[in-house]
Design a protein around this nucleic acid. Structure first.
Lengths: 223, 223, 223, 223
DNA sequence: GATGAATGAGAGTTCATTCAT
DNA sequence: CATGAATGAACTCTCATTCAT
């Protein structure tokens, strides 16, 4: 019975989140009243406040949930044993599809970052999501598939930033998808790829790279 | 006398815009009351409504003004006779600097795009700004400095998106600037650059490219 | 417990109406702020809007309530078994007294009828009130106490209009009442009264009149 | 040239009054902004305040003008040498027509009477208009055409009030006119008319009546 | 006298949040 | 835990009125 109880609570929480997500997407954050969310979630207004301290926390939870779901998919795209280029392709495809489909959520995310006086904060789940992109870059470097001279975060910025901006472009053009964006990005990434076997690595850094690689693989495998 | 009158009106409008811009940046859009803006601009509350129909239109005007100023600077960075790579470097540097310095404005921009039921609209001045990036890519293609097989808008997405995302990264790390981001981006763009003189172009497309180039140069020179 | 709840709601609604009525009468509609009404009714400002969508609807409710109360009194004056002339006297007396006592309400009523673009509307409760006057005229005609050649509504206009205008006259003169107005009106109504037994009525119309009379009596008895 | 100046001033004043009257009728007093009136009158906003201290005084002026015009027509209807009943008929007809045609003005009049704290005031021009009705009743009494036992003001209340109320009835029914209302009223007034020559009046009161009659006739002739 | 930009008090209204039931 | 009526601070916006030109 305690289980039933807990399940009911979680179902309620999920209902509120889903209602809020759909209304925020549809009418914007300011255009959505707490009363509407409660009605759509079939709970009383006050009940929402039992689960979330205020509207902003609810907004953050909605955004969090969105990126958590996204993170799951991104991890799945990257966990295979396929070669790096294929994994990048899959991740890029997944990312671009997701951003286009839920572009409203991307905008709402930037809304969630803005809080009264504070400077723009990074929400934890987004950090986690971006971390998937970082890890794949780091692994590429560690495995020697990507050159080590460019920091992983810069490759990630190219990868992530390009796709985000292309998503905006495609959404504005009302195009549902464009795979050539991914082709272009991947061929660009060839510039980062080592053409030859990684020459002349001194054994110290080689060792370090191997350890890092093992660490990364282990982290990825825990997903 | 008409001049003095007009000047006073414009000064007032500018004062309101400046006040709004600074307060929106400082406290966010929701955290700023129309009364505050009026006080900071040293006008009466009602006066603001003489110039802008409501808070949202004022917000749009603030955002518009920001991107208009940015556009001026971007055009300046691109108007020289310097080689493409140097122009790209300058544009990238200007863009990255600007986004970092006024990162709040970037966030506010996404706020301005969100209006009640409407989907995310593109504000005209941003379009104009992005157009500067498009033009330099198009010119590079027309002049044969960039390969023609990748659409200009995709190169632009890489260029613009990478820098935007890097700006976010740097702001989150509280770094004021990082030139290596630009170096990285430029060296990546080598992948788009033709290594040899553009060989084997049939005379028809050559002719077309020349015409396009002249057209672009003429447009740029009019800035 | 539902009862207690409902009673509290109704008490609150009544408190708001009473507060509004008294303030509208005292200071006029424009001279009364919603905040004042809320304070006088001992509720929060927002609470008023829980019961009435806006100031105009509150005004209409106030006016409605006034005429509903008036209607009750008017019906009581007319329900007796007394002869027509006595009932008319009582109704006239009640009407005149009421209009004089709450003359402000009569003026406010005309204010309630005016809404932005719309032409003057007839508020339902006033129609109901006037209907009491109509019914007594119709009954008089049906019973043969009043001549049938003048339409009931014209008799009613004489009756109602004269009293309303006399009320204005008396209020302007600051007289609390003047029974001679009623005497005059009643003696004038002798002109409508059949001096003899209704002669020469053909049996058909007689029958119709009887049926109408029964119908009217039945409607009145249901009050 | 002074004349031209004065004429321009008067033309302006008239333009403002006309604009206000038409807008008040069309959109109600609250629904009309001073700026609209100024625009329609083709003057600047501030100019209106050179002629009228505030909106309420402008409203009063509009109402005043309306009743002044009405008074002219009413006097014309009554100045003839025709017998009383015919004069009454003409006055009633004129009154009823006017009220129906400009019913909005009647409502606006009651609006003009309401000022913040004050009780309902009588506007001077309405008093003047009603006075026309009083005078014809007084004259009828003095000339012996109406019985002296009912005060003139009561007869006037019957006459005026009935017509006013009938006007409302007809407006609500969207009827442009109904002459039977006047027939009914006139035949009712037969109840006030002396059937025989005024018998047995003592010479004193007879003398007084004659003097009053002369006085009234003189006043009427001065119209 | 005429203008119309500027004023600013004050209005109605909203809605996130609370709390007695 | 759940409710939803009640709250009231704070908002945007209006518009009659003023006054420098």
């Amino acid at each position: 019975m305690g289980d039933t109880q807990r399940q009911r609570l979680e179902a309620r929480e999920e209902a509120i989140l889903a209602a809020a997500a759909s209304l925020f997407s549809e009418s914007g954050v300011d255009g959505t009243r707490m009363a509407e969310i409660a009605r759509k979630a079939a709970v009383a207004e006050g009940t929402v406040y039992l689960y979330y301290k205020n509207k902003h926390e609810l907004l953050e939870a909605v955004v969090d949930r969105f990126w958590r779901e996204l993170t799951k998919g991104a991890k799945a795209a990257v966990t295979s044993n396929a070669p790096l280029s294929q994994q990048l392709t899959e991740l890029a495809s997944y990312h671009l599809h997701s951003l286009i489909d839920d572009f409203k959520m991307v905008e709402i995310t930037s809304r969630a970052r803005q809080r009264h006086g504070e400077p723009g904060r990074q929400l934890p789940q987004i950090r986690e999501y971006v971390r998937v992109f970082d890890l794949i870059m780091q692994r590429g470097i560690a495995s020697g598939e990507l050159e080590a001279s460019t920091p992983a975060w810069q490759m990630r910025d190219v990868f992530y930033g390009t796709l985000e901006h292309s998503a905006r472009t495609l959404v504005l053009r009302k195009q549902p998808f464009d795979s050539s964006v991914i082709d272009n990005l991947l061929s660009l990434f060839d510039g980062y790829r080592l053409k030859h076997a990684p020459a002349k690595q001194d054994s110290g850094s080689k060792q370090a790279a191997l350890e890092l690689l093992q660490q990364l693989e282990s982290e990825i495998s825990r997903w």
